[in-house]
Amino acid sequence: MSRARIQTANEARFERAVRPEKPFNWFRLVVTVAVVGGFLGAALSVDARWERLPEAPGQLWNIARLMFTDLDLDDLPDALESMWESVAIAWLGTMIAAVLSFPLAFLAAQNISGRVSVVVTRQLLNIPRAIPEIIFAVALIPIFGLGPLAGTVAIGLSSTGTIGKLSAEIIEGCGKGPVEAAAAAGGSKVQRIRWAVIPQVMPEIVAFWLYRFEINIRASAVLGVVGAGGIGTMLQQNIEFRNWGTAGMALIVVVLVTIIIDTVSGAIRRRIIRGPRSVYGHVVQDPQQIV
């Protein structure tokens, strides 16, 4: 053993060296007991048919096999059209939320508005944040009827909370310098916001709009389950009627389109936050522009 080799060189010291005892970690014990206990307690008390759990992997494999061996290219146009409707719902919903949340964000920012306005607006923004889109959608269907309009308004209302809260936080983080400069030049409150605050916060807010659009695509892809438009209807009906080939095509379209839009939108977001990398170099290299 290597220990023996070391001992020959450094015998006396190693005889005395003792690894310090690990202190007993009460916190770790409590957390472990809480997590394990919570898991077992919930798992044993929940009213679920656990005896069917062993079937799940086999059944899932079965469904996946049926879905992807039975694909029919004739379903592709339908799937793409429904997915486009989902993307349209997500896009318009995000725009509604952007328009609604933009003024609310200023009312909810501590460095812009007074105490009362901040507290009231924040609470107002908390409500749609906690309610899932589907609940908005089912409440709007009796009002607008089955179809994509209910889904669009549902996405718009439910995203307003998140976008508003995050925009307010971005506004609160903006630098004081430009605001003071605008104030020193005699800018009114509105002018200070227009020329000192908005230019600072806009890139981050627009990037967040885009991020929310990516999330909303996932949401609008399932809104059809309750009849609020998009590819969800196609998925739900074909899964329910065991029409696996068509369901598989719809699933593939959802996954691919989601990943593609995520990638493109993510690149645009990074570009918006980082700013144009080459502009400074470009200006300096172009002599006509500096003179």
């Binding site: 009213d47 048919r49 899932l60 399932v222 998925l235 996954v255 995520d262």
Partner: peptide
Amino acid sequence: SIPDLLWALLFVAAVGIGA
């Protein structure tokens, strides 16, 4: 990229309704 509700649809088809 598969939304939660879609997972639920698939598992309801696989193991029946319930928790």
